[in-house]
């Protein structure tokens, strides 16, 4: 069964990949491709939280910290050294280092549950405040001013490694979507490994897992670092997309938004958070375009209704429906 599931995942991803990479770039306008690039970057971020929360039980309000740190690192390194590829690696490295430090602090303090949520939220707010207050031009790293509330503008796009040719809109799209698919595949694989199974057992019952001899702290820390690496990369890709990074990424609104994506899409799945991120962003863009109702009000009502009607999230609900349908189909066969 597990093997079958893994095959379904691989084949599904492959099909999605062919459509997204092979067909979409030729079928839609470049500005739509740019939008899709953004959605893909955000889907990567959503999967990173979906992984640590849905499979590691770590409800972090601070996933945006790693996203933001990734974005800032990319901007600072890319502008200082004129090397976007190096910057991308640096973004991941810095995010992982941060996660190891923060994770050690949190998990060795046995923080969990809502207290973990608040400590990560607080750390995110500290970043928000400090970044905002560094607006004077004396705050700079190398040649790049931190920029305070206004942020760092003029972030360079990615280039073909070894050359100085920037990636076009379509190429950036293909790259980011490919990364998203690889992240999905990679995380799906990780969950099925021994590591992933132990992580899940810790989520289900930490005491039992520890009695069986597993150091829960170590496993959570590893998962946290993996999540941070992915979030940091998403942040760098976001910086590439928007050309500017500012402290908004550390704000409480953005942190909450990621949690909403994961919950609406479906906690405990990987595709759910990604789908949640894409759908909600499309909805937000559409609301700003049609303007029939205050966008905040519409989103607010949607969240409430969704929690009440589809508490498990979209994807688990769909899976449930499909399972029922296929079950009936299987039974009706002789």
């Amino acid at each position: 069964m597990r093997a079958l599931q893994s095959h379904v995942t691989t084949i599904g991803t492959l099909v999605a990949g062919i459509v997204l990479v092979g067909i979409v770039p030729f079928a839609v306008a470049p500005f739509t491709l740019a939008d899709l690039t953004l959605y893909a970057a955000m889907a990567i971020l959503a999967m990173s939280l979906g992984f640590i929360w849905g499979f590691g039980g770590i409800l972090s309000f601070g996933q945006s910290v790693f996203f933001g740190v990734g974005g800032y690192t990319y901007a600072i390194v890319a502008l200082n050294f004129d090397s976007p590829s190096l910057a991308l690696l640096a973004a991941i490295a810095v995010a992982v280092t941060g996660a190891l430090l923060l994770g050690y602090f949190i998990f060795w303090g046995r923080l969990s549950d809502v207290y973990l949520a608040v400590i990560t939220l607080t750390i995110s707010l500290i970043f928000f405040m400090l970044m905002n207050s560094m607006s004077s031009s004396i705050y700079r790293i190398g040649d790049v001013p931190i920029g305070g509330y206004n942020g760092i503008p003029g972030i360079p796009p990615l280039v073909v490694p070894g050359t100085d040719r920037s990636l076009s809109v379509a190429e950036t799209y293909v790259l980011v979507v490919t990364v998203a698919l690889l992240v999905y595949l990679g995380l799906s694989w990780l969950i099925r490994t021994k590591f992933g199974r132990i992580l899940c057992s810790i989520k289900e019952n930490e005491v039992r897992a520890e009695l069986l001899g597993y150091d829960a702290r170590l496993y959570k820390l590893a998962a946290f670092a993996v999540g941070a690496a992915i979030a940091g990369m998403a942040g760098a890709l976001f910086a590439v997309y928007s050309g500017l990074i500012n402290p908004d990424v550390f704000g409480i609104g953005f942190s909450a938004q990621i949690i909403v994506w994961v919950m609406l899409g479906g906690l405990g799945t990987l595709i759910g958070p990604a789908l949640g991120a894409v759908l909600i962003q499309m909805l937000v863009v559409w609301l700003g375009k049609v303007q029939v109702i205050d966008a905040n009000m519409a989103l607010g009502v949607l969240f409430i209704v969704a929690v009440l009607l589809v508490p498990a999230g979209l994807v688990p609900r769909l899976q449930g429906l499909l399972a029922v349908a296929f079950g009936n189909l299987a039974r009706s066969r002789p």
């Binding site: 909450a256 205050d294 905040n296 009000m297 607010g300 969240f303 929690v307 508490p311």
Partner: peptide, 26 residues
């Protein structure tokens, strides 16, 4: 409908917060 489900209440009340903000502005 959400007692005992701390995470769901976060999402629902976050939605409520957005709704009330929009409603107050109207």
């Amino acid at each position: 409908n959400l007692y005992g489900r701390i995470v769901e209440t976060i999402l629902a009340t976050w939605g409520l917060s957005l709704f009330l903000m929009g409603a107050a502005s109207l």
